[in-house]
Simulated scan of single mutants.
Amino acid sequence: MYPTTLTQLSRANPFNAPLFSLQEIEEPKQSLPANGQSRNLAAAAIADSADVSCEFGSTKYYALCGFGGILSCGLTHTAVVPLDLVKCRIQVDPDKYKSIGKGFSLTLKEDGARGLAKGWAPTFIGYSMQGLCKFGFYEMFKIFYSDMLGEENTYLWRTSLYLAASASAEFFADIALAPMEACKVRIQTCPGYANNLRQCAPKMFAEEGVWAFYKGVVPLWMRQIPYTMMKFACFERTVELLYKHVVPKPRADCTKAEQLIVTFTAGYIAGVFCAIVSHPADSVVSVLNKESGSTAVQVLKKLGPKGVWKGLVARIIMIGTLTALQWFIYDSVKVYFRLPRPPPPEMPESLKKKLGLTE
């Protein structure tokens, strides 16, 4: 019989490139353990249980992954607030802020050095909450979808699995991010409106109600879901390729420092692609949260095909560095807390037998 409908749909994405395809495969018979989850992604988890602090896929595992997400997203986004502020001002007022250098010089001239830190509080709070949901839910959905697909299909369509898990996680992460993102953009792009979060949030609520904090959630989905899909899928496959073709020894033989270097490299490569994919929607979000009463469609028409690409260079620099640091911090948390780390994907023995690759 043919694979499940979910498997068939997963084949139709532009990022998926399996090494081969099967015309017909039998649905793998899953033997669920007592806890009801097959944990296909952890089929060959670390052999020495003394080396890990918790079970793969346990509540503690998800909690620590979420904590890693808080640190990786909250700290890195807060660290690049000055560049983010200039990028947003280029997007909403390109006639005044013509370049990165001009944006920094004008901001320093008008607001002083403290002006570059505008919006740091909503940035830290918002992206910490986003990181909690993004990384925590990604790990959950990755295991959930893997259990649905079965061991063989998980290997064959692992890129599709990464895309689906990351998109699902980001859907919820953006709902957590939206209120603080709205405050951040309003503080950074509307001179004189508010100097900090304590002033901004009550004022926005008084003027527009709760809708003021969530009117940008759809553009956020448009920006963040493609960004996160690229971030996770590109990172996972880049790590796999680096260990296969660049690193001269298996991951298990690498030191923790060497593994983190691979993580940082793969994160930066993924970040460049993330910035390009998500930039048009990012421009819409910046303008939408600056203006009261506008809709995403109106802003898109106003910016035009060229306008949505304003500030791309600044965003590539920011997102490339940001994504690399996020993966580095997230992986460091996993190393520090000794979380179980499944090895790189390998073809299951049952699939090798079907393809005649075993004696």
Rank of each mutant, 00 (worst) to 15 (best):
T123Y: 00
G69T: 09
S53V: 06
A50R: 14
R89E: 02
G103Y: 09
P82C: 00
P33N: 04
A121R: 02
F137D: 03
C88H: 13
P82Y: 00
Q37P: 00
A113T: 05
I70T: 07
Q30I: 14
G112V: 01
F67A: 15
S38C: 05
E139D: 05
K96S: 14
L106D: 08
K96Y: 14
A47S: 13
Q30T: 13
L85V: 05
I46W: 10
I100A: 15
G131R: 10
F135E: 09
K109T: 12
Y62Q: 09
T107C: 02
L108D: 03
C54P: 08
R89F: 01
Y138Q: 14
R89I: 04
K102R: 14
G68K: 05
R89M: 01
G74I: 07
Q37I: 02
K60G: 05
T59F: 14
K109P: 04
T123E: 02
F67Q: 04
L85Q: 05
G101L: 13
P122Q: 05
W120V: 01
E55T: 02
V92S: 15
K118G: 00
C65W: 11
A50H: 10
T59Y: 06
G69F: 13
S128A: 09
L132G: 05
G103R: 11
K109V: 02
A44L: 09
Y127K: 00
I70G: 04
C54F: 04
A113D: 03
R89P: 01
E110P: 04
S105C: 10
G103M: 10
I90N: 03
Y138C: 11
S128P: 04
A79I: 08
L64M: 15
W120C: 08
D93F: 08
R39K: 14
A47T: 13
G36Q: 01
E55H: 04
S49W: 06
